[in-house]
């Protein structure tokens, strides 16, 4: 059974978005998504300073099976990327909600988070798949 913590919001494209104390939003992919993808072998990270609209493709995660696009859950500017993933992409498999984070975005409108699913909504979505 996949893990879906209550402290964050979820996009139907399987990213999680966690609002941090400084107002920035940390983004990664869900436990359910990493299970579907299988062993991760490569992550193409976005660039710090890159400006994104909500829903823009900004990163690619590649597993042994397939490549999968990562979409920005909110509009804003990338302020950090997880360079550790260059050498240890498998952190997304072993720790999708902590060590396996992909980027941090400074949102233009924090309220865009309200458009995302909560944990229960995301669980319902994945059960319907």
């Amino acid at each position: 059974m996949s893990d879906t913590p209550n402290d964050r919001k979820y996009a139907d494209s399987h990213e999680w978005a966690l609002l941090e104390a400084d107002g920035n939003i940390r983004v990664g992919i869900t436990d359910h998504a990493q299970e579907l993808l299988g062993d991760l072998v490569f992550v193409e990270l976005p660039e710090v300073g890159q400006e994104l609209n909500k829903g823009d493709e900004c990163s690619v995660v590649e597993s042994v099976k397939a490549a999968s696009d990562i979409y920005s859950p909110v509009t804003g500017e990338i302020v950090a990327v997880n360079e550790e993933l260059d050498d240890t992409p498998e952190a997304i498999n072993t720790s999708p909600y902590a060590d396996g984070w992909i980027f941090v975005i400074k949102p233009t409108e924090t309220s865009e988070l309200d458009d995302l699913l909560d944990a229960d909504g995301y669980i319902n979505l994945t059960e319907d798949e």
Binding site: G38, D39, V41, V64, K65, N93
Partner: peptide
């Protein structure tokens, strides 16, 4: 079966 855990 595609894998039983880790394909690698």
């Amino acid at each position: 079966p595609v894998n039983y855990g880790s394909q690698i």
